[in-house]
Nucleic acid binder design. Structure first.
Length: 574
RNA sequence: GCGCCUGUAGCUCAGUGGAUAGAGCAUCGGACUUCUAAUCCGAGGGUCGGAGGUUCGAAUCCUCCCAGGCGUGCCA
């Protein structure tokens, strides 16, 4: 059953109780059938009567009639009527508005917060870029989705721990070092001015060379072995790549407003690998195979490799060590890996290996996969263009600036352009089901940088416009209003949407799906725009004006809260 | 070959068992001396990839097939 707003919960429980008692039905069954009609104008809640037809041996239409007749409306549930095989329940709109708007007004920035996760810890592994490689658009997804999920779970009352599992270990570093130490590839000037692109090119060049010269791969593996063994020269090189990268990452995270509780990358587990191997051996799940040490995890899944034939560890070994460390350190309720969908198999293997090692908490680990930017290369290969994150953010900000200069004369136009541009990028990334690939044509920035329609700037604009009306109202927002004045269809639609925010947030947590919040904000914003078209807020009549001000201030509050979850700024002016 | 993901309007996507399948973009037509036009209003546009099945009821659940993407032991 989907989580729901407590305000709704109480009403639905009441309806189910009464219907079940009067018709001699199971309360739970009635309760589970109650739904919100897709179309407005059919009442606030509906009960389809088809399932009762068989047991009661009557037509569903007739049963609906009987229920509607037997049901006694109360102070909140105003009316109840049969429409064909459905019973439609309508709440007293004024009473409903009073409750919903009251809760939002008093809740403020905390409206939507819940306690369903209290006492539980959720660990999120997200962003996790590779050191010595540039932060490209692909990393944006993990960063933005992970950061949004952290805020979702925090709102739901969980203790959250954000971990950046930096890709700072592995044979790739052997490759980097092998490439870096080639005398004929050195370029000190370039390295000083443009280190990250320089390293990226070295790495790409090395990977191309490998295809022609198999000896290079061996050279790379040997460098990594030296690193794992603590060789001085290897450690120093590693440190150089690490430090340069961290400065770069820090700059990007600041721009995106993303933070982490821990930067424990793969290298952090270097001294925790032996234990993994020992545990696997002592639990008799590790076996020798083709010179390597592996854990087999089923017929349809390739085995998990703990040690390669040259004795070095793998991605799996480090992930096993990390999972064990996190369990011991954080005692998590959930461990979520926000990593690309293409690594589905890797995590399947990882979780199976944990199970085979006898860890019951393996069932609490989950891979939160997401789609890619299919037209973008991470290395600039394969005829695809490399697109850096900075390139996108800069273009977004430039466009926002251009747009702003067309209309407004506000102060701090460049500050606004920055939050709008970055907001557009983040919102776009979180707009659809995370498993879907992001539609992006590198030749056509409009695919991801549109500012009209279903976009971040549209929601931000709506927020700014609402804030502007409230500013012009010029008096404090009060809940001491006549709620009978908020009962037009547009009022009721808005109230109903506002009421559903906490439920949608809980659903986003349950489904591990930030797009539920994004979609909700678009629905709410569209309803609000429609409201402005239909009703003027700053009318002469003081009671009506006060009532509408409260309503739109609540809408503004919920938009602000939702945008905050997504990591998108809610500007007061734009 | 096997495994996973995706398939809904021209395009990009919502819709995870209920009433007439919805948005944005694009196209066409309309609204700025009126609380911000980054907006709003209206129109056209659909064999929900295909075929079976379960159900009172299927875009939604099951089976098979088709198409695209990703992955498939010594990169991570």
């Amino acid at each position: 059953m989907s989580p729901m707003n407590p305000l709704v919960q109480v009403v639905l429980d009441d309806i189910a109780q009464q219907v079940a008692t009067r018709m001699d039905l199971e309360v739970a069954e009635v309760r589970s059938l109650l739904e919100v009609p897709r179309e407005s104008g059919r009442g606030d809640f509906a009960l389809p009567c088809f399932p009762f037809a068989r047991v009661m041996r009557r037509a569903p239409q007739q049963i609906a009639e009987e229920i509607a007749t037997a049901f006694e409306p109360g102070p909140i549930i105003q009316s109840c009527q049969a429409t064909g095989p459905f019973v439609n329940f309508t709440l007293d709109p004024a009473e409903r508005a009073r409750r919903v708007l009251g809760a939002i007004h008093s809740g403020g920035d905390d409206f939507g917060s819940q306690d369903i996760g209290s006492g539980k810890t959720v660990v999120l592994d997200y962003s996790s870029p590779n050191i010595a490689k540039p932060f490209h658009v692909g990393h944006l997804r993990s960063t933005v989705i992970g950061a949004a999920l952290i805020r979702v779970y925090r709102s739901l009352g969980y203790q959250t721990i954000g971990v950046n599992h930096l890709g700072d270990w592995g044979t790739q570093f052997g490759h980097m070092m092998a490439a870096y130490s080639r005398e004929d590839w050195k370029d000190p000037e370039r390295e000083a001015s443009d280190p990250i692109p320089f390293y990226r090119e070295l790495y790409a060049r090395f990977n191309l060379e490998i295809e022609r010269d198999a000896g290079l791969a061996e050279e790379g593996r040997n460098w990594f072995r030296r690193l794992e063994e603590g060789d001085q020269e290897a450690r120093e090189l590693w440190k150089k790549f690490h430090d340069v990268s961290m400065i770069e990452f820090d700059r990007i995270y600041r721009k995106l407003g993303v933070t982490f509780d821990h930067f424990t990358g793969e290298s952090f587990y270097n001294d925790k690998m032996d234990r993994v191997v020992e545990e696997a051996r002592s639990r008799e799940v590790a076996v020798e195979s083709e010179g390597a040490l592996v854990i087999s995890v089923g017929d349809h899944v390739p085995p998990v490799m703990l040690l390669k034939s040259n004795g070095t560890t793998t991605y799996h070994t480090r992930d096993l060590a990390a999972a064990m460390y996190r369990q011991e350190t954080f005692d998590f309720e959930m461990l979520l890996y926000v990593v690309g969908e293409e690594q589905r198999l890797h995590f399947q293997q990882l979780f199976h290996a944990l199970e085979r090692m006898g860890f019951e908490w393996a069932a609490r680990c989950r891979h939160v996969g997401f789609g890619r930017y299919p037209n973008i290369s991470s290395r600039g290969q394969g005829g695809k263009r490399f697109v850096g994150l900075d390139e996108i953010l800069d273009e977004a900000i430039r466009r926002a600036k251009e747009k702003a200069s067309e209309n407004s004369d506000i102060e701090d136009a460049s500050g606004v352009a920055e939050v709008v541009g970055i907001g557009a990028v983040i919102f776009n990334d979180l707009k659809n089901n995370r498993k879907k690939d992001v539609d992006f044509d590198p030749e056509d920035w409009n695919t991801i940088l549109e500012f009209r329609g279903d976009t971040g700037p549209y929601v931000q604009y709506s927020h700014a416009r609402t804030a502007s009306i409230i500013r012009k109202h010029g008096a404090p927002v009060s809940t001491r209003i006549d709620y009978q004045l908020l009962t037009t269809p547009e009022d009721r639609t808005l109230v109903s949407l506002l009421e559903s925010y906490p439920g949608r947030l809980a659903m986003a947590g349950q489904e591990v799906e930030p797009s539920l919040v994004t979609r909700y904000l678009l629905d709410l914003t569209k309803a609000l725009s429609h409201y402005y078209h239909k009703h003027k807020v700053l009318v002469e009549d003081p009671p009506l004006r006060a009532a509408r001000i409260l309503l739109i201030d609540c809408a503004r509050q919920v938009i602000a809260n939702g945008l905050k979850i997504l990591g998108v700024a809610a500007p007061e002016r734009m």
